[in-house]
Amino acid sequence: MAYKTNLYDVSKCTACRGCIIACKDWNQLPAVIEPFKGNYCTHEDTNGDTFTIMRFIEEETDPADDVKWHFLKYQCMHCFDPACMKVCPRHAYTKTEWGATYHDPEKCIGCQYCTYACPFHIPKYRKREDKITKCTLCVDRVEAGLTPACARTCPTGALSFGDRHELLAQAEERVKFLRANGFPNATIYGKLELGGLNKLYILTDTPDKFGLPIDPKVPAQIPFWKDWVQPYVGWLIPLALAGSAFSFVTTRMLAGKHGEHAEGGHE
């Protein structure tokens, strides 16, 4: 089955935040009212009741030039090789056929291991349920043949949803156009990062300008522990016993050779 992905084209986004509201509405998330502290985005990050936020980042490289106001819709990236899935002790995470990273609340024990493993720090703890929540890529809508709520709402078409390879082709064209028309650093984010993300971005500048990690990495201990050690952890005990037994037997055998020296005889 083909992967279905969300494409977010920053160059068309006006930060109207209809997507933010649509997400709250579809998922019936309560409002989290935090005070305005000087930035249009009142949340520093997503939280247990806010799956997606819009970042507003002002940049001014040259006062004689125009200021830039970077907008970025930020949410779970639905990685193809998700760290959250790797570390979850209860296997609450799975990948759907079409590419969403699905979190099953029934299995979740709220340990928050996934929060620390995620290179984007996305899964957030919802205290009242003692569980993790995050963007679902509107799994329920998509599997009923609809588009995710955010893409459905977007008035300018900055957000779209469809077959990954088609959207990727469109994104390549768009980036080529943008690079030739005032945005020389335009780039795609999500094509190759972390082995591919199921949320694609067309950025008008380098990822760091939008607060995105340029080369996101899962913390090194995790693949080490999870890919190299943990799969074999079940063998540790039998291996240790076997090692012991081997050691015992061979020591005895070695001792047996020089046995008359080992018995008695001490002054």
Binding site: I20, I21, P30, A31, V32, I33, E34, P35, T42
Partner: peptide, 8 residues
Amino acid sequence: PWLAELMP
């Protein structure tokens, strides 16, 4: 509430 959240 959701709009109050965006611009409180």
